[in-house]
Amino acid sequence: MNARQAILDKLQQSSLKRIGDGDVIPDRPGFQVMQRERKSNAQLSQQFENMMAKVKGEVIRVPQEELESRLNAIIEAKAIKTLLLSPESPYKASFSGLLDEVRIYDKAIESWKEALFNDIDAAITSTLGGIAETGTLVLWPSVSEPRLMSLVPPIHIAILYESQMQPTFWHFMHHHNWSEGMPTNALLISGPSKTADIEQTLAYGVHGPKELVIVLVEE
């Protein structure tokens, strides 16, 4: 008998025995404890900002119409030389004057691993939204915005719309009907990468980005 069958048989036998003993399968638990008081988007984004600040996430509030110019300012302030963008990014042209190079993530990782790991200073990605209670960005990497954009470059700049804020992860997944189906990869990101493995001393920027800049767009 193969391992699969053996394991399932053992489990099923125990289950059947329980049912034979008069055990009933309980209903799914109630999730009332996950519910939250209703809050406005402004309140939620304030909470988000407070939480992000605690883990060194840099939140920059930007009115929609100033988005492009403020991105320019960020690039300048952070002295970013090589910037990674999605092929669908609307800003390709506007940045080119500021930088040494704008790279577009448009070919499979295998063909340019070294460059991605060594040459890129920063990447800009979109986000699906934010979670207020924990100060969390939600990302669904895609064909045009692959997974490593938010991971390998030392600076990750994420664009978040204030309107896309949910109180908790639980609200977020229900709001977006995630149970219907998930992408190959979905991510919650709460701050730049960090570790406390050396005697509990917090150190930022271990394997992922050292800086996380959230451009919070107010509409």
Binding site: M51, V55, Y105, D106, K107, A108, I109, E133, T134, G135, T136, S142, V143, P146, R147, L148, F169, M182, P183, T184, N185, A186, L187, L188, I189, S190, G191, P192, S193, K194, A196, G208
Partner: peptide
């Protein structure tokens, strides 16, 4: 575990790289 409200990453994987995807 550590008193963090959440960890930096919560990584949800539902399959290998699909056609056209560029990493994974």
């Amino acid at each position: 575990a550590t008193g963090q409200p959440i960890t930096t990453y919560f990584n949800m994987i539902s399959g290998p790289r699909k056609e056209n995807e560029l990493d994974g």
